[in-house]
Design a binder for these strands. Sequence first.
DNA 1: TTATCTGCAAACGATTTGCGGCAGC
DNA 2: GCTGCCGCAAATCGTTTGCAGATAA
Lengths: 152, 152
Amino acid sequence: MTEQGSLLDDLKARGTRITPQRAIIIEAIETLSGHITAEQIFAAVQQVNAYISLATVYRTLDLLKELGLIIESNMGGPTSHYALHDHSTHHHAVCRMCRHTIELPSDLFKPIADQLQTRYGFMADDNHLVVFGWCKGCAERAFSGGSTCQSA
Amino acid sequence: MTEQGSLLDDLKARGTRITPQRAIIIEAIETLSGHITAEQIFAAVQQVNAYISLATVYRTLDLLKELGLIIESNMGGPTSHYALHDHSTHHHAVCRMCRHTIELPSDLFKPIADQLQTRYGFMADDNHLVVFGWCKGCAERAFSGGSTCQSA
DNA sequence: TTATCTGCAAACGATTTGCGGCAGC
DNA sequence: GCTGCCGCAAATCGTTTGCAGATAA
């Protein structure tokens, strides 16, 4: 589906080498195709070639990030999540309590993005925005009775 | 200005002890009154009492976070930033390239927050949202000529 | 009193880096 | 063959934690 050739081409155009490791890592990112951690990518890559190191995964992620081909986002935890930049556009609402994530359509933020562009000249990333807050269940629990959450 | 008594009261109401360390840390957060890192708080606290440890700062931040009195947000770097939850409401636009931050009025996101509430029952935090993207300068540089940024 | 808090220092997990050898172009 | 890349392992950095003594209530 997604033409991973373009990613490799982008790398080549930038003057970087296409190594088997990079091809494998890129393919893993495309196959997993979600918001994934470096560890998850590493695990997938290892199934293809067990001799690829985690350091290489991180270095490749840096490279792709720099090229704008992938997006790094923080979901509230200590680990970064990565996703293809052109992966089906959507945003996230993350519950501060139970960490549950809701996917939001990207058009929800269109008006905001337009305003940022017009008023500040800021070109907002149209993808993988993260909004924190409280999901229905946790909000009810927190603002009525106790402040505990079942899945905290 | 801001009544720091209320923070201490909140702590007391929760059954936690009011220690000098906590009072100092809370005061530091209120005095710095922005989006500050644990290290910054630690530095400020040290000027009042050099024997307060960084661990205590983190533990107090956890406590305040759990109580919802402060908000932890990630500005794209490796360090967390903290702010009083009721600190003058605003959001942030952070440039992925030069890390420059623009402060945005909170009402910009009001319509979005309303929609999240209506459509998903999600109560979005009305404060300290972080939008990533590219500032005017970096966007021009990146999408016309080279992909380097002066302050990267 | 006594349960909670503190300081210390060591542990921790995610990420980065120095280095010698290897390999894409 | 040259330059950039890789694997390894150690370093780093922010943050967390175990423990024994101190202290607010």
